[in-house]
Write a protein that binds this DNA or RNA. Structure first.
Length: 264
DNA sequence: ATGGCCAATATGATTGGA
C-alpha cells in the first residue's frame, strides 16, 4: 500500500503533471492540497480513468483538498472539527477497509500563518490546536492512521536551507515548532525522518529568486503515522525530480509504503 | 526572504501563497 501527498497548487494547472506522476509512482492513495477548484469543476475524468475513486472538498479560488484512492471509501468526512466559523476547505478524512481493520487517512492543508503580526498567525495556531485535539481523539481508536499533507511547518533546522533567515517566519518560529512537536508527541512517526537522517530532503522550493536552482528548499510536506501504521512502514521518499518538470507545482510529492493488505 | 514567480479573478490590479 503506497500513500502519497502532494500540494499541486491548482488541480487544473497541474492535471497533466499529476497524471504523469500517478502513472509513474503508482500510489494507491494520493492526498492533494491547494486544488483551488470548486467541486463541480474538478477534473475527475482523467483521474477516474486511472482507476481512482475521488473524495473532494474544494472551494472557489483558494485552498481545496482531495483524496484519490484505488480502493473504495468506507467513509469520507469533510472539515476539521472545532471551529464553526472556519469555512476554509483544508481538511478531508477517509476510511478504507483493510485486512488489519480500518485505515484512516487525513489529508490536510495547514494554514501558512504569515504575516505573523496579522490574524493569520493565531488562526494557524488555533488550527494546530484543533488538529492536536482531533489526533488525540483518533489515536484512541488504535488503528492505522496517516496524517498527510502540507503542514506549512519546518520541523527542524535541517529541514530548511538557511535556518537563521527563517527564525521569525510562521513556518519555523519556535511556537510553530512547539505545536508540531506537541502533535507528533501524541504518538506519531514522521515517516521520512523515520527512514533517513539525510538533511535537505526538501519538498518545496519557491518559484521566486531562483530558489530551485540554488536548492533553497523547505521540508514542509509530511506523512505522520500512528504506531499501528508505523509498525508496517517499509519505505518513504520524496519525488524531487517532479519539481524540474514543465509547469511544476512549487511542492513535490512525498510517499510512504506500508505493508497493509486491502480487502477488495 | 527575495532580483528573479505563479494562480485565480473578470484582471489589466489585487490577493494569497511560503
Amino acid at each position: 500500500m503506497r500513500i502519497a501527498t502532494w500540494n499541486v497548487n491548482s488541480i487544473k494547472q497541474r492535471i497533466e503533471n499529476l497524471v504523469a506522476w500517478l502513472s509513474e509512482r503508482q500510489p494507491d492513495i494520493a492526498c492533494l492540497q491547494e486544488t483551488k477548484c470548486v467541486d463541480e469543476a474538478f477534473p475527475r475524468a482523467p483521474l477516474e480513468a486511472l482507476g481512482y475513486n475521488l473524495a473532494i472538498h474544494g472551494q472557489k479560488t483558494f485552498n481545496g483538498v482531495a483524496i484519490l484512492s484505488k480502493y473504495r471509501f468506507d467513509e469520507v468526512i469533510l472539515g476539521l472539527p472545532g471551529d464553526n466559523r472556519d469555512d476554509h476547505a483544508r481538511f478531508i478524512e477517509a476510511v478504507i477497509s483493510t485486512a488489519a481493520g480500518g485505515l484512516r487517512i487525513a489529508c490536510l492543508y495547514l494554514p501558512n500563518g504569515n504575516p505573523v503580526n496579522s490574524d493569520k498567525y493565531p488562526f494557524k495556531i488555533s488550527w494546530m490546536d484543533r488538529l492536536i485535539k482531533y489526533t488525540y481523539e483518533r489515536l484512541k481508536l488504535e488503528e492505522p492512521l496517516v496524517l498527510a499533507g502540507d503542514f506549512n511547518v519546518i520541523p527542524a533546522p535541517e529541514d530548511v536551507y538557511d535556518p537563521p533567515a527563517w527564525i521569525e517566519d510562521a513556518l519555523f518560529r519556535p511556537q510553530t515548532r512547539e505545536k508540531f512537536r506537541a502533535l507528533v508527541n501524541l504518538g506519531l512517526i514522521d515517516a521520512v525522518r523515520a527512514t533517513t537522517d539525510t538533511a535537505s530532503l526538501y519538498t518545496f522550493w519557491d518559484y521566486q529568486a531562483g530558489a530551485w536552482q540554488k536548492n533553497n528548499g523547505l521540508r514542509i510536506d509530511h506523512l505522520l503515522l500512528s504506531a499501528q501504521a508505523a509498525d508496517r512502514l517499509s519505505a518513504a521518499g520524496v519525488d524531487k525530480h517532479v519539481r524540474s518538470w514543465e509547469k511544476p507545482s512549487d511542492h513535490v510529492p512525498v510517499y510512504v509504503d506500508l505493508d497493509i493488505e486491502v480487502q477488495r
